[in-house]
Design a protein around this nucleic acid. Structure first.
Lengths: 355, 355
DNA sequence: GGGGAGAATGTTTACGTAAACAGAATGAGC
DNA sequence: GCTCATTCTGTTTACGTAAACATTCTCCCC
């Protein structure tokens, strides 16, 4: 009877509820706990008959290994932390998807933290929160304003970052922002536009800065006038607002938007004002979100291989986890090709007067 | 010397590496481990001077509590599992974002599993994987083809589902698919369209089925002809392909697409074929993704309050976790209002001949 | 100053698992 | 049949933490 009492008392006295333990299974199967463990992990051979008996007992009791105990014993959690700024942004969610998939393939689960506002303290807090969580590695998709120094990660925690600012501090994987941006601007220049305007991302964003700088540099290199960039915040609404302004000007014939959403908002505003795309204004985006090809007109844009990036991030973590490789200086770059669709064309010939 | 040796030997013999433990802190601070625990959890009062000494020691050693041990001792993980079908679909990622945010507010982290293909075995596997993970509750955003019976969840695990098929089996929270769909179809009928065509989601999807059924029923109720629905798969590409077909027919004046992406593809195809929206064909979507208002023309659609849903899902979990409430039959419904924009209008008067 | 309440701290124990070691069973070779 | 290698199984122990109980200390009151 004593065993039943023990079982029944579970959760009543002192310790919280929990399912059947390895010991309960062992008792029912008439073997030692260690043998149950061997069956459960498959680490060492067990005689077929014994194994069956144990498996039977497991099924009968609805046994599932207690992962807290297992993690405590093994010293790892088979879990990766993931910090992202806005899950919603299509690019990021693709990367996240890839991270989750790749992690699962390695037998790891992913613990996700979203940073609402990309303020430095927010990110730091998220890191604190997560790095004290039960994780074996940490992937930071976008750290935005946080600096590597401010993060104060546990020194032994494997980290992989998809943020250019962390290069040199943590292993990084990222799209070739500069190459993609230059290709976009050059494409517009090659079509015959005198210069290219830019709708930038938020001032405190690393990628936004890279794209803006590459845009400016390409114009300078080509000896073109560098107009004042428009300041956006990644949102389609911002693109729409800026587009309403641009629609009033007839000196803007080509715009490179720092992402597809702002490009979509821009095009919307131009349509509404009766300006034609690409006849009156050519537009290039950045990201190649799924809807980009179904906008009207289908959007010329720079594709980011988010899936590849997510996959590579996990690989970087796994390499640190496995071989204790020192990867601090590692920086993987994924190509960002220009996808030419129908939102770009040669400028129409017209009078050069301003207003 | 023995303590140094012990410290140095960490990770060499038998047990994996791990940071300083509560005992190391205790030794350095000259107190018992229990007192360190008290400081660390703040559960019981500790004299200010002692606390400072302990905190100092913690800082000095870079101590962070071992969450596996803590979870083992406490019997919970402060972590929620989340199963979603495609993270990428905008609606879902908004819900996920809300879940993460709400969970964090409760001090919980979120462990995410994505189900690549929504086959039954895939979902079951994901559930197995996750429910054996270190989680205290499980949220299933989209279970697709999996049936409640096939899931075989641990009976004690709190669950919340955003999938109509699980109503009655698990507590559920979902948008009012039927109400939203009926409003969309009725809106088109009210504009004067003779009937409304439908681009459905995949046949094995619950929400797709609900929307299709509501569409059909609304037509029947109005005494209208029910045309054969088009079969889509949620993707914009499918919408585009179907749109190319629809563009050839002049008997289609109004289309209700089961989501915004397919609506976008449809509009793209119509544009390309020279059919005007809404003059020739009115289009309504479902979801109200961020880009819907910036499509051309801005899309009339049914809004899903994903954020609300995500928040409510967490609340349902918390209620089970807290009061041991029995919520099996619970079903929260979130309104899905029709947002009228410019992709719908009265049909133009024209000849009734077919082809 | 003795007694006692309450606060502060220490000691013991258990959570469920798996590594390390130890012992038993089996079978092969002579 | 006996030794030895091999395979299988059992026993002991430790992972780091926190609940329960035990003890010490402090301070107040009579």
């Amino acid at each position: 009877m004593s065993s039943e009492v023990r079982g029944a008392r579970r959760g009543v006295k002192g310790h919280p509820k929990s399912g059947p333990s390895i010991g309960d299974v062992a008792r029912l199967a008439g073997v030692s706990a260690q043998t149950v463990s061997r069956v459960s992990t498959g680490s060492e051979p067990v005689k077929a008959e014994t194994r069956d008996r144990v498996l039977d007992a497991m099924r009968q009791l609805g046994y599932a290994p207690n992962l807290a105990a297992r993690a405590l014993r093994r010293g790892n959690f088979r879990s990766i932390g993931l910090i992202a700024h806005q899950v919603i942004r299509t690019g990021e969610s693709k990367t996240i998807e890839a991270v989750i998939e790749a992690a699962r393939r390695e037998g790891y689960s992913v613990s996700l933290v979203d940073v609402e506002s990309p303020s430095s303290s927010d990110v730091s807090e998220a890191v604190q929160h997560l790095s004290h969580q039960a994780i074996d590695g940490l992937i930071i998709i976008r750290a935005e304003t946080a600096t590597p120094a401010a993060l104060s990660l546990p020194p032994t925690l494997p980290v992989a970052v998809s943020d250019s600012r962390f290069i040199g501090h943590h292993p990084a994987v990222g799209a070739d922002q500069v190459g993609g941006s230059r290709a976009a601007v050059q494409h517009l220049l090659d079509l015959g536009h005198a210069t290219v305007h830019h709708i930038a991302g938020p001032a405190d964003s690393g990628p936004a800065d890279l794209r803006a700088t590459a845009w400016r540099q390409t114009l300078v290199d080509a000896g073109r006038e560098v107009p004042e960039p428009f300041g956006g915040d990644w949102s389609a609404d911002a693109g729409y607002a800026i587009g309403s302004e641009i629609a009033q000007r007839d000196d803007v014939t080509a715009v490179f938007a720092a992402n597809d959403e702002m490009a979509a908002g821009l095009i919307h505003a131009l349509h509404e004002a009766g300006r034609r795309v690409p006849d009156d204004v050519s537009v290039v985006g950045f990201d190649d979100v799924d809807l980009a090809r179904h906008l009207w007109p289908p959007l010329t844009t720079v594709r980011q291989e988010f899936h590849q990036i997510g996959h590579d991030l996990v690989e970087v973590i796994m390499r640190q986890l496995g071989g204790r490789e020192q990867l601090t200086g590692y920086h993987g770059t994924v190509a960002a090709p220009l996808i030419v669709r129908q939102s770009t064309a040669a400028p129409r010939k017209r009078r050069r007067t301003r207003r």
